[in-house]
Design a protein around this nucleic acid. Structure first.
Lengths: 142, 142
DNA sequence: TCAAAAGTGTAGCCCTGGCTTTATTTGGCC
DNA sequence: GGCCAAATAAAGCCAGGGCTACACTTTTGA
């Protein structure tokens, strides 16, 4: 395969992977948020989810519907939203990854507030391999 | 303002910022790609853009239309696509930021190939402040 | 030269993730 | 016990970013 063709497929693969990561980012954010609310208040209400995500209630309802389709959450009409086992596991992974990304940014000299802001978008594109490297870096650095 | 309300608005702000970054990510990627093609071949053809982005040509056409709306590119029917001054400036910024993000990932122990993959999604969420910190880190590290 | 191939444009569809508006249910309180 | 406010649901709109199908140019080469 000529070099130019290889360049094209490599680039396309990268973009396709980035697009795929984006499609699960929303699920991850909502799962984490619902997990937080379940811990704080025992249940996650649609109104609370919406307020914290910075969206309107119908938008939150749609996102929850998608979480339910994916088997990550359950809810009954006019009742709170709860994460399933899978949802809780996802929320935990997301939370842990978020902490690592923020820690790495701060270790590199990024102010805490900025680290939080940037991590929110970056974290969804941090692969397992990169996450492992981040953890090693943090440990090695002490 | 009570602490809980502050928590909610802070989180909402982070998500809103991440969403805003996402909405310009596509423009950035296409601008960079078109810039690359202009350098390599003198012009960017829709088919080449589409192939490298890993999408069909109508999708590339739509993206170019948006670039034109934003004043970042120009084109005439059945002719190549060219970046405006603003588009070239954006492409340069994006390219430079991409290099820095990849370099930082590699410096942290991420394999080159994975660094390229992850950087593609992460870079759009790297703020000016974080980028500056990355550059300082790379220089300090030598 | 002119017909086929390649490239480009356009229309229309789908899904996601925002939104507003309108209906329904719940729940607290008099 | 019943009413009203708050919460939730439902429906429908919009833009973005994918896609396919089809129409139309442009280029190429027999």
């Amino acid at each position: 395969m000529p070099q130019s063709d290889q360049t094209e497929t490599d680039a396309a693969d990268r973009f396709n992977q980035a697009r795929a990561a984006q499609s699960v980012a929303l699920l991850e954010d909502y799962a984490e948020m619902i997990g937080d609310l379940m811990e704080e208040m025992g249940e996650a209400r649609i109104t609370d989810i919406a307020r914290r995500m910075g969206v309107t209630h119908p938008t939150a309802t749609k996102a929850v519907a998608r979480l339910k389709r994916e088997g990550l959450a359950i809810s009954r009409p006019y009742r709170g939203v709860f994460l399933t086992e899978a949802g809780l596991a996802l929320a935990d992974r997301v939370r842990a990854r978020h902490r690592v990304v923020v820690a790495v940014l701060e270790a590199l000299g990024v102010p805490a507030e900025t680290a939080e802001l940037d991590a929110e978008g970056m974290e969804h594109h941090v692969s397992e391999v990169t996450l492992a490297a981040f953890e090693r870096f943090l440990i090695a650095r002490g």
